[in-house]
Amino acid sequence: MSENASTAVKQASDQDAAREFKQKQRKSTRKLAKMRWQIYLLLAIPVIYVFIFNYLPMAGLVIAFQDFDYSKGIFGSPFVGLENFEKFFGAYNFKQILTNTLTISFYSLMTFPIPIVFALLLNSIPSKRYGKLIQTVTYIPHFISTVVMVGLIFQILNFRTGLYGSLYQMIMKSTAPDLLAKGVNFKHIYVWSGVWQSTGYNAIIYIAALSGVDPSLHEVATIDGASRLQRIRYIDLPAILPTVSIMLILAVGNIMNVGFEKVLLMQNDLNSTYSEIISTYVYRVGLASGVNDFSFSTAISMFNSVINFVLLVTANFISRRTSGSGIF
């Protein structure tokens, strides 16, 4: 019985099976599926869960094309076609919100190489103990929650009582300009506090990839007279390139999902012209204000998701073509 099963396993998993076996295989697949009913039973739990909590909300996107009325429900509300999308594209602040979203996300994407450089340098220093210490300390900020992180930014950058204010006072002998009151600074504060918080943690994956580099490559290169910098360029960098391209695809695929939670917390009246992004706008229109225009805000959020998805697929396609590795 079990022997039959294992041959069937091999047959089922062997994709290059010859044609004449196909008929037989189809039969054994069905038999195999029947034998695996317990696994299907286990998998039914997450499949149903994901259906309810992920796919039902996707189906709910239909309200973006409706004039949704809570009392009538999804099935009773009238369809209005693309009206909600047109309303968004025609809104007075559409251009500003889109510009803010793109500015902040591309600015964040520009800092993508920092953890890579950090990992390469950390990997190259001769004192392993010092390297471990740096590594350990630079992970810590990753565990600070968004709420505390934003509180920390506000406290540190306070122009009177914060670290920034005190240092400025000491060096320049005058009161510091208020960085937080100027909306233009929003993107810089957002992006660089992110670099401060996550460089160490984001570098882990590259450090892990670097630890897999064969040391004999380095030995040979050293004998041939390669400098450390050349060894980084010709040994270390190519070794982590596949990891880099996967991380880059993921980063591009998330480009429209600017850290919504952090932006929302950092927002105030002083910087809202520079800090209102698509997702915070969705929240404001749909849930935070008294208006609760569900259809309109769903249309905006759907616009965001679709762009995001297209970007991801494009990035993956380009990576497949150029480097041969992709996420799907």
Partner: peptide, 18 residues
């Protein structure tokens, strides 16, 4: 079926309604 949910979602509003 699972992986698709990583890259596309119904968003905040429809989840809230759910």
């Amino acid at each position: 079926y699972f992986v698709f949910t990583m890259f596309f979602s119904g968003g905040m509003i429809t989840s809230f309604l759910l």
